[in-house]
Amino acid sequence: MNSLRKLSVLIEEYTNIRNFVVMLVLFVLVTGTMEVCPFGSIHLRNISNGVGMLDMLSGGYSSSLVYSMFERIGEAGRIGYAQLLGLDIVFALVYMCLLSLLTTLLLRGSGIGKQWILLNLLPVARSGLDLLENGLLLTLLFSYPVRLELLVNIASTITIAKWVVYFIILALLAVLGIYAAIRKIVVRTRSRATPGA
């Protein structure tokens, strides 16, 4: 717990608008590259009849879906998908930093930053699941045509867990954003009322 708090405080120390903007730019660049590069997600969706990246399926995936997709995309497609998962590792790290910085900024703006600072670790948990998921999917790709159905089930469960954490993060950001906006309005209203009192 102490090491988690240290990590949370470290994120808090590096949180400022400049670092957030840098991470936002990196996020846009990495996401754009993942979409349009020759082995990107658009190409994968096209050759997999719309399935695309398995980790984007928030409801998980079955063994039959995984292996029918692997067969459909062929060897070149599987190599491209493995490259895309490698790039997704970079995405997971950049997205983790971006969401952690945004969470910390909103915690500050809402005035509850110090009490609930550990909430800025939720994106770390999400990216940890993402990295584990990528490792399992790469194992499935490199093991093909051997079918590792248990590993597919584990990977699918981790994918679902990652999306659950992600939706929690989005809900948290929405609540913090609303709270911070209300707090800002209240502070402005009070500061305007005080000089005339």
Rank of each mutant, 00 (worst) to 15 (best):
N2P: 01
N2V: 15
L4Y: 12
L10W: 10
E13L: 10
T15R: 08
T15Q: 04
N16D: 13
I17T: 12
N19H: 08
F20P: 00
V22R: 09
V22K: 11
V28Y: 08
V30C: 10
V30Q: 12
E35H: 14
P38C: 03
G40K: 11
G40N: 09
I42T: 12
R45L: 11
N46C: 00
S48E: 10
N49D: 15
M53F: 12
L54E: 04
L54C: 07
M56F: 14
G59C: 10
S64N: 08
L65F: 01
V66A: 14
M69R: 01
F70T: 02
G74A: 02
A76D: 06
A76I: 04
Y81S: 05
Y81H: 07
Q83T: 01
Q83D: 07
G86A: 05
A92L: 04
A92S: 15
L93R: 03
V94E: 01
V94T: 03
V94N: 02
Y95A: 07
C97F: 07
L98K: 05
S100C: 06
L102K: 06
T104E: 11
L106F: 14
L107H: 05
S110D: 02
L118M: 12
L119N: 01
N120V: 05
L122S: 08
P123A: 04
V124Y: 02
V124G: 00
R126K: 13
R126N: 13
G128S: 12
L129A: 14
D130H: 15
L131H: 04
L131M: 15
L132Q: 09
L132G: 15
E133F: 10
G135R: 10
L136Y: 14
L138Q: 15
F142M: 10
P145F: 05
E149T: 14
L150N: 15
V152R: 05
N153V: 02
I154T: 14
A155G: 06
S156W: 09
T159L: 10
T159G: 14
I160H: 07
A161Y: 06
K162T: 07
W163R: 07
F167D: 08
L172K: 05
A174H: 04
V175R: 11
L176C: 03
L176Y: 08
G177S: 11
G177Y: 08
I178W: 12
Y179T: 13
I182D: 00
I182F: 08
I182C: 03
R183A: 11
I185W: 05
V186H: 03
V186R: 09
T189G: 13
S191I: 07
R192E: 12
A193M: 12
T194A: 14
T194D: 07
G196E: 11
G196Q: 13
